[in-house]
Design a binder for these strands. Structure first.
Length: 313
DNA sequence: AAACTCGTCAACCGCGGGCCA
DNA sequence: CTGGCCCGCGGTTGACGAGTT
């Protein structure tokens, strides 16, 4: 279980690769392959550790790597795969020929995750952020010192309600979790820029998932994924029964009585005080509460949303 | 034009798993 | 069985360019 010592060696070059280094590595691998990364740098005449060489090869030099923008299809596939697999970037990469795990990970973290957050979805669960309503209920429980203060809070809440309703009750992204490229780029013009069509009345959590009744995995990924999941059910950290029955992907009459779909355990960090206070913007996604507490930080998140902010003033 | 902010992405780091002696 | 070694994975960092003030 020891750690690779190669990176601990001092004197080895780190940082960006020079074109000459790339050429050396490329030539060596083309001639001899890469059976042993540890000794490869020496043999290839590189002052790098084997790990660095492997990374450079895998993420950049390998001939079949597809570079450039992700297509809408790839984007959709990543979204689907992430819903099922969580942060299993290397597994996702197997389903996207020419794309590396690093590339997919970066794309997720810099684009898709951001979009989901902006649209009011938790990127880990791909569900609307249901903790909004616990936030509301908590606000309602706050003891107010004066009638004037009560009026003020109430006025704020009333102003917020339409947004909260929208964010919590609309059909998840294009019958979530599959968001069409069109909607990604052209969300319907509601106040929050969310890809929703009609406002719906607020509903209990369980009914949020009724959309699952007619959802199916896209054929393109269904077969390999089903296989993957079957083989790696431990990876997703819950049994097939749990994962598929509770997943909105699966046509299931059981959904309404089930609690909201929980993400694979490793992919759903629990809320901690630290995550809530140290980062109120970008990674707030991972701060969503699933433990029934919390939600006091939601107003902070709203304050970060330009379109929401005016409502509180 | 300079300073600042933000987004992107290549690369690093540390850990866990598998293999083998 | 144990421990060393290597590989691969996922999270994080930091450089850099583009956009904004």
């Amino acid at each position: 279980m020891g750690r690779s010592p190669c990176c601990d060696q001092s004197g080895l070059k780190k940082g960006p690769w020079a074109p000459e280094e790339d050429e050396k590595l490329l030539l060596y691998i083309q001639k001899h392959g890469h059976s042993n990364w540890r000794f490869l740098p020496k043999l290839a005449g590189l002052n790098r550790c084997g790990k660095s060489c492997r990374l450079r090869w895998e993420n950049y030099l390998k001939p079949d790597i597809k570079r450039g923008k992700f297509s809408p299809e790839e984007e959709e596939t990543i979204l689907n795969l992430h819903f099922v697999l969580g942060n299993k970037w290397s597994v996702m990469a197997k389903h996207l020929p020419g794309r590396t795990d690093n590339e997919i990970k970066n794309f997720w973290n810099t684009r898709i995750k951001r979009k989901l957050i902006k649209m009011g979805f938790d990127p880990m669960t791909h569900q609307p952020r249901t903790d909004l309503f616990s936030s509301l209920s908590q606000l309602l429980l706050i003891p107010l010192a004066t009638p004037a203060e009560a009026c003020h809070q109430l006025a704020k809440l009333i102003g917020c309600l339409p947004q909260m309703i929208l964010m919590n009750s609309t059909s998840p992204i294009k019958e979530n979790p599959v968001l069409s490229s069109f909607e990604w780029e052209n969300p319907s013009p509601n106040p929050l820029g969310m890809a929703t069509s009609q406002p719906v009345l607020p509903v209990p959590d369980s009914t949020l998932f009724s959309y699952s009744s007619d959802l199916q995995l896209p054929g393109s990924i269904q077969t390999p994924l089903t296989n993957e999941i079957t083989q790696a059910s431990d990876v997703t950290s819950f049994s097939q029964e749990e994962s598929w029955l509770q997943s909105p992907w699966v046509p299931s009459a059981a959904s309404p009585t089930h609690p909201p779909h929980q993400p694979p355990a490793p992919a759903a960090p629990l809320v901690t005080e630290t995550t809530m206070t140290s980062n109120t913007t970008g990674d707030a996604c991972s701060s969503s509460s699933y433990e029934g507490e919390a939600s006091l930080f939601w107003p902070e998140l709203f304050l970060d949303d330009d379109s929401f902010f005016p409502l509180l003033l």
